[in-house]
């Protein structure tokens, strides 16, 4: 993934600040990476390299950790993060159908970010609200007992323009590009 102008400097200063708060110790690797992601929303390569240099371990060892845990992302998240719970109770009450509905509407697959970086879609193992299944986390807020018909409502609430009823499927592609000054470059997929 190519960085945008000014992004590299932003990454360097954020990681530098994070590293000041921690001991340069291998045991601090997870907390450091969590803090970096907390600041930047994901783990850019340049950030992982800086962390590796600071804790004095091979870069690939940081990459191993960054790619092992679900929580770490290697690409920037969307402005709106949608996480569909795929725990047992949610699965039984149609979590997969909810996931399908989001995938269809956002025209991305689970784990991806829309081209305009407005939405990212993820699965979470269980958020522990099983009695309210199926649940969806919309920007960390829990939406309880989501029915397939609620999916459009959630997206409309977040400013997504949905295809008009009459629209033919092939017209839909353009709708997802909500004008923003951010570049519309390819957002790499997370895991």
């Amino acid at each position: 993934m190519e960085l945008m102008e000014g992004e590299l400097e932003q990454i360097q200063s954020a990681v530098g600040e994070v590293l000041e708060k921690f001991d340069a110790d291998r045991e601090q690797l997870l907390p450091i990476l969590q803090a970096v992601q907390g600041r930047l929303g994901y783990l850019p390569r340049e950030a992982m390299k800086m962390v590796a240099a600071a804790v004095e371990i091979p870069e690939v060892d940081v990459y191993s950790v960054g790619t092992f845990y679900n929580q770490f992302r290697l690409s920037p998240p969307g402005k709106n993060q949608i996480k569909v719970c795929m725990g047992t109770a949610c699965h039984m009450t149609g979590g997969n159908i909810i996931m399908d509905s989001f995938e269809r509407r956002l025209e991305i697959e689970e784990g991806e970010t829309t081209k305009d970086r407005e939405f990212s879609l993820e699965r979470v193992a269980c958020v522990g609200c099983c009695a309210l299944a199926p649940v969806v986390l919309v920007n960390e807020e829990v939406e309880a007992k989501v029915r397939p018909t609620r999916v459009d409502g959630i997206l409309l609430g977040l400013g997504k323009e949905l295809p008009k009823k009459e629209a033919r499927p092939e017209d839909k592609a353009q709708d997802s590009a909500v004008p923003r000054d951010v570049s519309t470059q390819e957002a790499g997929d997370a895991r």
Binding site: R45, M48, K49, I57, P58, E59, V60, D61, V62, Y63, S64, T67, F68, R191
Partner: peptide, 18 residues
């Protein structure tokens, strides 16, 4: 320290940084 076991599960593989 050029290669490592990265990712996990079925995605696990020997690879270099990035």
């Amino acid at each position: 320290g050029a290669i490592g076991l990265v990712r996990r599960g079925m995605g696990r593989k020997v690879a270099a940084f990035g």
